[in-house]
């Protein structure tokens, strides 16, 4: 999975540079997040603007990141969801779990 990372203070933004997040590539995101948590970087923004499709594994990877960040007194927030991706969060009721923002700035300013 192609991931682009930027850091602003304590917050790491991971932009998913893939059209699909599925059972084939979601493990890469989980691994990258665990690596960041091990480095003490527990405040994450995940930018999903390039993602057109997400399946249950992709959602599971984000839930994993959210749980691990919360357990370390950090947070994981989402931004820039395409409408079809947003509808998956609603279908699974995960929009009640995650803080979801329309753009990166809003997400960064919310910490």
């Amino acid at each position: 999975m192609k991931l682009n990372m930027t850091e602003q203070g304590d917050i790491v933004t991971i932009s998913i540079d893939e059209e699909r997040m599925d059972a084939h590539n979601s493990g890469d995101l989980k691994e990258k997040m665990l690596q960041l948590f091990d480095e003490g970087k527990c405040s994450l923004v995940i930018d999903l603007s390039a993602v057109r499709f997400i399946d249950s594994s992709g959602l599971g990877a984000l839930v994993s990141g959210f749980k691990n960040a919360s357990a370390r007194e950090g947070n994981l927030k989402l931004c820039c969801l395409q409408p079809q991706v947003r509808s998956m969060f609603e279908l699974t009721r995960l929009h009640r779990v995650f803080e979801i923002f329309t753009n990166q700035d809003e997400a960064l300013n919310s910490f």
Partner: peptide, 17 residues
Amino acid sequence: KAKASDEGGRGVQLIFK
């Protein structure tokens, strides 16, 4: 029924839904 905090278990339920 997958709980909000569950990482897996949503695939088959999505198919049925």
